[in-house]
Design a binder for these strands. Sequence first.
DNA 1: TTCGTTGCAAAAGGTTTGCATACCA
DNA 2: TGGTATGCAAACCTTTTGCAACGAA
Lengths: 155, 155
Amino acid sequence: MGRTATGEHPSPWRSTRQRAAVLQALLDSGEFVSARQLHAELTSAGSLVGLTTVYRTLRMLEQEGHLDVVREQSGERLYRPRPSDGHRHYLVCRECGLSLTVDAEAVENWAEAMTRKTGFSDIEHVVELTGICDRCRRPGPEAIPEPRPREAGCD
Amino acid sequence: MGRTATGEHPSPWRSTRQRAAVLQALLDSGEFVSARQLHAELTSAGSLVGLTTVYRTLRMLEQEGHLDVVREQSGERLYRPRPSDGHRHYLVCRECGLSLTVDAEAVENWAEAMTRKTGFSDIEHVVELTGICDRCRRPGPEAIPEPRPREAGCD
DNA sequence: TTCGTTGCAAAAGGTTTGCATACCA
DNA sequence: TGGTATGCAAACCTTTTGCAACGAA
């Protein structure tokens, strides 16, 4: 999807309290979070930001390539700030949302090879890995509290 | 996500005109189709089936493991009958919906290796490849009619 | 002052559910 | 006949958009 030719912002961001708050919450979370979650955290932290603004900010960041996005089974989108250039692949815990960056070189190579072998062009790939992390598995079945709403993380 | 322990249906399907029609339309299409598309095809073919029934039938088939499901950018789900046991990976044309089954052994192996290396268990993977197929690319930019609603295929 | 940004409310788009009716077994 | 399946309408959920008021530069 369109990449900015020059890398310059078409129009400079205007720094506002709301955008700073959304970005900060995103960075604080450290894990994949949904727009709704982000909005809830901001609200409970006393930083009143409209849900619309959360969505708009996330969309802008996504379009600028600053976020990685994965999709839940439900179709809900989860966002995470992109650590560096180029996209990454994650292994996300279904219980607590803990995410690991995984080496996806094999997949990258494979996807690239597909371009040549299939006659398709502009191939994009989405790879989503989910599992149960070590810490979520440790407690016995009766000790597991609940399928937490992916809040804080396993720690 | 629960796998049926015995493989038996909890309650036997009742064969109805509607279910037969949905299944037939699904098999006829051969490509990934959305519920809405399926419903439209059934309707225009004179086989009156409620959209609700289409969704319910697809959900049942999915839960039984008879379908592969990919997700569009929009979040819309596309269904395709699963050719055989075990899941497959597809390369889907963003223009026309043409899909190719691709060799995903590399990804399978990679996903499996992750299980051992990360401490995660029950790893599930979603791999979605999209691109522009050879035929959709051929016509010059001015010859491309429209971003067709993924109807019949490239032909 | 200017024009991008915000936020409410409402729309949009896809999917699910409640409930009375129709129909398979 | 009994209980499942159907289908309409409405609910749901997430995301987007219209528009008037707000606020950063």
